[in-house]
Design a protein around this nucleic acid. Sequence first.
DNA 1: ACCAACGTAGAT
DNA 2: ATCTACGTTGGT
Length: 762
Amino acid sequence: MSFQREANRPKPKMGTSAAVKLPSNRSASGARRRRTRCRKCEACLRTECGECHFCKDMKKFGGPGRMKQSCIMRQCIAPVLPHTAVCVVCGEAGKEDTLEEEDKFNVMLMECSICNEIVHPNCLKVKEASGVVNDELPNCWECPKCNYAGKTGKQKRGPGFKYASNLPGSLLKEQKAVKEEGEATSTSTAKRKPEGDEISRHRPEEREPLHRHPPVLTPSTLPRPRPEDKLRKKRKLFDDDEEEDFSVRKKGKADEPLFPKLLHQIKTEEEDQEEEVDEEETDSLFWRGLERRDRLEDTEDWAEDGDGKDTKTNFPRPPLKTPVLDSDQSHCSSPQAGPSSEGGSEPQEKGPRPKARRKRRLPNKELSKALNQEIQKTEDCLANENRQPLKVEPESENEEPKRGFRIGSDLGGERPHLRTKEMNGTPWELRHFYPSQITPLGFNRSSPGTRPLPPRSPPKCVQMERHVIRPPPISPPPDRLPLVDGKTHAVQREVWMKLFGHFTHKELCVCMRVCKTWNRWCCDKRLWTNIDLNRCKSITPLMLSGIIRRQPLSLDLSWTNISKKQLSWLINRLPGLRVLLLSGCSWVAVSALCTSSCPLLRTLDVQWVEGLKDAQMRDLLSPPTDNRPGQLDNRCKLRNILDLRLAGLDITDASLRLIIRHMPLLSRLDLSYCNHINDHSVNLLTAAGTTTRDSLTEINLSVCNRVTDQSLTFFKRCGSICHIDLRYCKQVTKMACEQFIAEMSVSVQFGLKEDKLLQKLS
DNA sequence: ACCAACGTAGAT
DNA sequence: ATCTACGTTGGT
């Protein structure tokens, strides 16, 4: 970046003809039409972030205005053809508005991603050849001519597509940075051993002494193994040509049979298939976590508090309001892609239209290649995972006893030292086991580390970047399941949805492979309010897009090696996120929270985050420093946090002061295993004039060895306190606890639920 | 007419 | 391979 600056200075005059030149494009057909934002997608509806490179360039944000690019947060997901676009054959605009769903395709304008020609499929003379519709982009296909000619369009970028990597904040950069930052990465990679080995030896942790203590955090070099070699081989298979085969294969097989000639159906199907591809992959990756989650679902309580509540609530009973539609629309806003196309029960015999074979073509080869690679990777991963037992140990979230303070489990969680190990090349996998096993408090959760670690390699950030960002899942249009004979199934979608509501995420993933309609239905975000990727070794681009599509209210990325860029990317696309669990992640990744905002976040778990100390806490809690006009507000980005989990962090009163000041709603605070926390800290939290004094309902100070009996006297000031966990605090006596109970009994009845665990009796 | 920003040539 | 700059298009 430094060099960029210099570059700018000179402001060489280069681009005279730049934008205008469309040589190759023009040759084939008329002028290339620039696409324009759809104005409906989530991205289009957003306001400028004011922080990205492009925003900073804008005059309104005090920049020079030279770049003239839209905010990276507002990159349209489905850029559309301009209204002025017309068919090169008949010279008329698209007429899809005039017809029914089924007929739209032939009268809508389609832009060829290869020759750029914009035509009405109906106006083409070559009807025999089939066009290949690109579902990624509205009104985009490979026209019959090009398709027939076997052109690949490789050389050009598809219309309307922007390389994410162009974006200044691109992962590419980060990646580089990371690399440089710690060469540990590569090292670790090299060292990394085959998963198999690791698996067998997971146990060790159990033996490890429960060091709960503030682990000495190692430098922030992230141990991110990125074994890609393996993948590499596979990828090859999907280069260009292969990719086609791949898609074709998929569709041909499963779908065709179902919906033979209907264009819509075919389209849909393929679309779905495509989706399936993504979804499947993604989903499968979710399995582990999902499965886990599902199991726990019934008992899970974290929903208790506001945050979790919503999340969980809907799950079982699918409220079928289709809130999502709007946003989705954007995605499908394009005439062709509209959800509407689904219902097609029409026999597609309609004459003249070229049979468009729907195939999901990525806008450009690069993209597709990248995507395919990812898919491949994912598949590999899947394969591996499937091979292994899906069992997972309960993770913090899940296990979390309703009350939020489940000490043992979470706390016991990972210790940083683990990380160190990883860095050294030790099995990253070990992490998985730690948490559950290390329960100093004695709450060992079952599920010993049965879970094998999928030998996944972390994805390339680059690839993630190039992923097309998709809007939330569409609440699938068909009200009823289309049948092969053109009729529809008697059972309505809502009923199906209720049924799906009882499935585990894993099961939903399976359902998604059944048919396009189920695929869509099962992607409904109401079925995915909680997405759990806890301990998922590698977060791939597909997973990220899968997450975005489902718009979860709760996301657990604990103990994953998610990168900052990925997290940032996610957060910015999950505006409604309520619960974010990042325990055990690196500070580098968590720091994404410093620049992204998730105003609705209620629960933040950053326990055992390596490298998270006072200074970092300050960055996390400080209001944006950028007060240029246009900036939203300078309030703390985490001002609405109710539940904050800081177990195992090396933080001091300095952090507490910030928390007290910036989190007025804080109700639950987990400071267990924080060795610097002492009576003075408690004094601060409960001092007159602080909001925490009245807002705190639960506090976890277990294994805080500097806390003494005196803290209990401070807690008497708290008006709402209901739960005080002082277990394993060496300096807290049982006597003091009993005294506390006795004194409080005048107003509130407390009881000792366990040794040094005070709980309000209600 | 004005603003936003697409798509790409050219610089790094 | 990336990133910047900008002519020009598209929308209002």
